[in-house]
Every structure is written in C-alpha cells, then in structure tokens.
Nucleic acid binder design. Structure first.
Length: 508
RNA sequence: GCCGCGGUAGUAUAGCCAGGCCCAGUAUGCGGGCCUUUCGAGCCCGUGACCCGGGUUCAAAUCCCGGCCGCGGCACCA
C-alpha cells in the first residue's frame, strides 16, 4: 500500500487515529527505580572518609536521598573505612562529609561506621567458612599466582574445621601481613581474574598503620567487597545506587549473597559526573595540595570540584541538586559545563542577591554639578533603597573603559560628560538619558569606597581583580552573595583587618 | 591484551524497552531583537544532533548484524 492509500483508508475506517495527539506536559521527574515499592525502599551512600567529597560523589548521594524521599523509604550513611594502610581515613573528614551532605540537603536516617563493626564481619566470615564457601589461604603470593593461572592454593580443599582454626589464628595475630587471607570460593577459572576466589579479609599491621577511629585494636580487616555485601544485607538495603566502576564488584558480591542464601538488592550503576575545567579527583587534589601548598587555599579552593569548594565559590546547594536531578540516574558519563551550572545558580541567586556598585580598573574624576541624593534600590524587585550623596567637587571612580563613552548616566544619579578628569553634569533627567541612549554606568564615590579584591578561578589559575565597591558593601558579612552591577555575582570570602574585602567571582 | 558498559546539537538531557504522533523536544551556549536606571533577570527570533555501514519493515533515533570511537574493570583499594 502506498502512503496515499494508507492515509485514505485510515481516513475512512479509523479517523480517530489521525487526530493530533496532544503532547503531554513534560515534567522532570527521576525515572522510577526498578522494583521499588513505596515504604520499602532502603538506599545508602557509602563514602570512604579518606578525603572530602566532590561533585561526582554528590551524584549518588543526591540520587539516593531523592529516591528515599520519592518512595518514602530510608537512607543510610555508611563510612567505608576498612583500609587503614593504602586509603587511610582522615579523622576530620567524617564530620566534613556529614556537613557537606547536610548542606546539600541530603537527609539520612541511620549512620554506620564500618571500622566499628569488625566483629560482625568476623562472625559472618566464620559462617561462610563453615558453609564451605570461604577459606583461609596460607599460600601468600603463591596463592595469588596460582589463581592467575586458573589453579588455586591446595589449602582450599581442606576441611572447614581446619580453616576455622586458621581464621582464629589470624585473629590472634599468628600471621603477618600477606601470610594469610580469607578468600571467597568463586570460580578459579572465572574469565575475570579478579573475581577468582577474591579476598574477603586480610591482615593489616595497624601498629604501623593505625586507624583513626580504632587505632591498632584490629589486624584483620575486611575488604570492600566483603564488608559491603554483609552490610547491605544486614542493613536491609534494597537498592544499591553506585558508580559504573562497581559493575565487576557486583559480580563478586553476589557470591556472598549466594553462600549465605540472602536475596540480593537491586543494583543500579550510574555514570561518572565531571565538571568541565575543574579537578575532582581526590588523589589529584591531594597531590596538588602537597606539591604546591602555597598556590592553593586548601581542599575547598574554588579551583577544585569538592563540595566545599563549590560552596566557598558561592554555588547554592539547590543548584547542585537541580543539576544532578536533571542529569538523572543514567549509565553514561556526563561532563557538565560550568556555564550550565552557573546558569542554574544565577537563576536561583538573581531574585535574592542585592545589587551594589563596583568599579575595577578605576579612573578618578571630579564631579561638577548640582548636589544630588542618588536613591538606588538594593534589588530591582524590592522597594528598599540606599542614598548616595553626590556634590560638586566630590571625587568619583568609574571604570576606565566607561570614560571613553563620553556622555553617560551615573546609575541612579545624573547624566554627565566625562572628559579631562572631570564629570560634568548635563542633566538630571532619566528621559534625557533614554532619548540619547546613554549608557548607564556604575560609579563609586572615592571618600568612603571599600577596597574589594575579587578572585576568579580559571582552570588551575586564580585571576585577581582589584577594585572598589560603594560603602554599602560594609553591611554584608562573610558568605553573603551579591551582584555587582554590570560585573557579576560574588560571594564574600573574607573581611580583612583594614576593612578591605576579598570575594570570589561566582559567575557573571 | 582480556572482560563489561555506553554512543542524540559545543555541553547536558527527552524520545529507544512496547518502530509511525520525530524532516527529533527541552535547557544551556552562541548570534540578533524587545524590555529594563546592570553587560543580570524576563520575553521573542535564529543557530545547531540521532557515531558509521548493512539488514528487517510500507515505515528505523528506536529492532538485528558488523565496524568505529569513548568509558570502566582486570588489587591482600574503595
């Protein structure tokens, strides 16, 4: 049938099919969580407290808390601090993470610290050994080598009672690092060598590498895959939302569920989130901080992508939340452009940020004209105003580029001609300025100008902009977010002893 | 190298499972205009994408096969 024939047939037999379908109003909602039942959903965010969290970590954290809310479920915060040797947890980071999460609006109902639960992991390990699906491997490096060849340490075939004994000896300290490990029986010929009888518990010499919470109390430590499986089950987690890098870990963890006859949760793997032009990687930030400590302000330096850095720059938590929800729980990686985040933030900030005048690259001019009381609203949508008096002989500062414009209107005040170091009043009338399409420029009286230095992060550099704000700035404290007219939004970072201000440019 | 997962404009995302309302929607960016005592916000117009090649079908962004590219994993890290 040709298209024409089809159409005419439809027209006569099924005319209703040809009616325009009305597009359903599109709403940005998180896609449903597979298998989720209202009131039954338990999710968790499980960071390693070895460093401060960044925007990439915020993705699973916010998604989890959003899903918990959506399904009237429960959210768990769990610190995964089971490696005091290579990923040594930092004492101060536990609290920093809690603070970052609270700031982001993440609500959690239960909290756990894995280093405080070691006895639980030991108990389950004994049960797994009894069931014959875990064993103690005393072969050391040889055991690793045998597995890589598709074989295994001969200890594997011994009776569970022998392994139970050896496990107790491990706990008593009879073995050193590397001499004994507990492995989960999987498939010694699994195509992925890391899956083959993976290590569930190993020995870490905590006299050399003390743990910030439990010191040197324990020497047998669970690995990530083992502790996670046990905890997710014991804590009743129904949905594991984590990065794609954990896909293989899911395969490994399923062996624990299988051995213990537990029913596994639903695993959702999401892509990585990057922020264009910013460093998110924990190790990279640490490296820069230790290599060039004088160049950076700390882990919350706005050139980094940590949550603390975004906060210090002046990004609002709602903006981060909105961004992450708009990206959703997709499996693909996403590189967010700064312009995108800035645009969301600007829309949130615009209705609440007061406007004040600021001049960088200033040129001083002497005002010649009538005395005027310039009444300038703090915000175009609100009636409150401040008054700035301008009289003959006053020195004002305006941007050098604006001086080139010739005749301009000083915002809120008068129209002036700028020439020869003078600002000569031509008229007070706003209509006059409109008719002549005069540029309206910001200006600052020199008598009580406040020195304001603005720092603008650009890649690994920090651009410094010096200038002066009107005296009104003095009313604002650290952390205030303002819009400098015709310049951009800033967050006040510091007020110096001499009364000068330091701020970060959030965005234009 | 082996194993796994992806690929829609500059960026992000909708549509893909259940093929036709899609010569592909939205946001942001970019260009232009309107409005406005800000170069901000708002409004209007424009710009620009289905990785490639086959196949199935009346019909493919959507299903199938092959290729290419990207990402992840291959720890006694998490």
């Amino acid at each position: 049938m040709s298209l024409e024939e089809q159409l005419s047939k439809l027209k006569t037999e099924f005319p209703e099919l040809l009616e325009e379908k009305v597009r359903v109003e599109e709403r940005r909602v998180l896609q449903p969580l597979p298998g989720a039942v209202e009131g039954r959903v338990v999710v968790r965010f499980a960071p390693n407290p070895d460093f401060y969290i960044h925007l990439g970590n915020a993705r699973p954290a916010i998604l989890c808390s959003e899903y918990a809310k959506m399904y009237k479920g429960k959210m768990i915060l769990r610190f995964e601090d089971t490696d005091p040797r290579t990923k040594t947890p930092l004492r101060e980071v536990y609290d920093a993470i809690r603070e970052d999460l609270r700031w982001l609006g993440v609500v959690w109902h239960e909290e756990y610290i894995q280093s405080l639960r070691l006895n639980i992991y030991y108990d389950i390990a004994r049960e797994m050994i009894r069931r014959g699906c875990a064993y103690v491997d005393l072969c050391g490096d040889e055991g690793k080598k045998l597995l890589s060849e598709g074989s295994y340490c001969p200890d594997r075939d011994r009776d569970p009672s022998w392994h139970l004994e050896q496990f107790d000896r491990m706990l008593e300290g009879a073995y050193d690092e590397g001499e004994a490990v507990v492995r989960v029986k999987t498939d010694p010929r699994h195509p992925n060598p890391s899956v083959r009888d993976w290590v569930a518990l190993r020995i870490i010499d905590t006299t050399r590498y003390p743990h910030p919470i439990v010191g040197s109390k324990y020497i047998v430590w669970p690995t990530y895959n083992y502790a996670v499986s046990v905890d997710d089950h014991l804590m009743g987690v129904t949905h594991v939302i984590r990065g794609r890098e954990h896909e293989v870990n899911t395969v490994k963890q399923l062996y624990v569920y299988n051995c213990m006859s537990w029913s596994p949760p639903v695993f959702v793997h999401i892509g990585r989130l990057k922020l264009e032009g910013f460093i998110l990687s924990k190790s990279k930030i640490r490296e820069l901080l230790s290599r060039e400590p004088e160049k950076f302000l700390g882990y919350d330096d706005p050139r980094f992508g940590t949550i603390a850095a975004l906060r210090r720059r002046g990004i609002l938590p709602e903006a981060i939340r909105e961004l992450i929800l708009s990206v959703g729980a997709k499996e693909t990686d996403a590189t967010i452009s700064w312009a995108n985040l800035a645009s969301i933030n600007r829309k949130l900030l615009d209705p609440i940020a007061d406007r004040i005048m600021y001049v960088n690259n200033p040129e001083e001019l002497v005002y010649e004209g009538d005395c005027v009381d310039a009444e300038i609203p703090y915000h175009p949508e609100r009636p409150e105003k401040r008054v700035i008096r301008l009289c003959r002989g006053d020195v004002i500062m305006v941007n050098k580029d604006d001086v080139k414009l010739g005749e301009v209107r000083l915002m809120g005040a008068v129209n002036v001609k700028l020439e020869g170091g003078r600002a000569i009043m031509t008229s007070r009338d706003l209509r006059y300025a409109r008719e002549r399409k005069l540029q309206i420029i910001q200006w600052v009286p020199k008598r009580d100008a406040v020195k304001l230095t603005i720092y603008k992060p650009e890649g690994l550099e920090m651009k410094k902009i010096e200038g002066y704000a009107e005296n009104t700035l003095k009313a604002y404290k650290v952390d205030s977010k303002l819009q400098l007219v015709r310049f951009g939004f800033i967050r006040i970072d510091r007020v110096e002893e001499d009364g000068s201000y330091k701020a970060f440019l959030i965005h234009e």
